[in-house]
């Protein structure tokens, strides 16, 4: 079973040279730490920055330079700042190549739910609905099952949706799944995790073709 860091590491392998990438809050944020060497990537944060760098050194924080998680950040050479309408213009206009975000549920037709649990405090969707409705390439980082062991990989989402038919790939602590027109296809399994274990942990049907390789994570 993968740790959250290992999920981020596996997703980092999906980031290609010259990609502009938007990272959501949580596991997706960790992906920035594992980008393979020799690859040029720029990170976008929807509050209005491209070319996001690491956290500032102690004492060098600037209240005017934060990411969408409201954390203090730095910028790298080539960075730029812009307003919110421009920011979502580049998202809606599909200038951002890859969006990585977390989810509470994903369904076999690519629907995603990640913003609201009815009856609980609702904090809002932030930029998630714009991101999932617009991005061509969306990878979800999430836990396969919830705290009581129930599958979050479903035939149909039970929670209010964030977007419909948009997710392309899901990486969990157990598996890498691709969403095809016929549903979830099992691509890889976590080291030491059997195909049977994944099937037992998944409510949705899985398309399984041939030997399923183990993920390679160093």
């Amino acid at each position: 079973m993968l740790t959250k860091e290992q999920i981020a590491k596996r997703i980092a392998q999906e980031v290609k040279d010259k990609y502009f990438v938007n990272l959501g809050i949580g596991i997706p944020t960790l992906v920035a730490n594992f980008i393979p060497k020799g690859i040029d990537v720029e990170f976008q944060s929807e509050n209005g920055v491209l070319g996001m760098g690491p956290f500032p050194f102690e004492g060098e924080e600037d209240a005017d330079v934060i990411n969408a998680g409201k954390q203090t950040i730095t910028t790298l050479p080539g960075a730029s700042f812009f307003d919110s309408a421009t920011s979502f213009g580049m998202i809606r206009g599909q200038h951002v190549d890859l969006t990585i975000l977390g989810a509470m549920e994903v369904s076999e037709n690519g629907d995603i739910a990640n913003w609201k649990i009815p009856g609980k405090m609702v904090k809002g969707m932030g930029g998630a609905m714009d991101l999932v409705a617009s991005a061509e390439n969306i990878i979800v980082a999430m836990m396969h099952v919830n705290k009581v062991g129930e599958s979050k990989i479903l035939k149909k989402c039970t929670l209010p949706l964030t977007g419909v038919g948009c997710v392309k790939k899901v990486v969990t602590e157990l598996a890498v799944l691709e969403i095809t027109p016929k549903g979830f296809k099992l691509l890889e399994r976590a080291p030491g995790v059997s195909v049977e274990h994944i099937i037992a942990s998944t409510e949705a049907n899985l398309i399984i073709e041939g030997e399923i390789p183990e993920m390679v994570i160093d």
Binding site: E58, E61, A63, I66, Q71, T72
Partner: peptide, 11 residues
């Protein structure tokens, strides 16, 4: 100019 999430790294 209050900071909501002060995140830093060590030198």
């Amino acid at each position: 100019k209050r900071i909501e999430q002060r995140t830093v790294r060590k030198k």
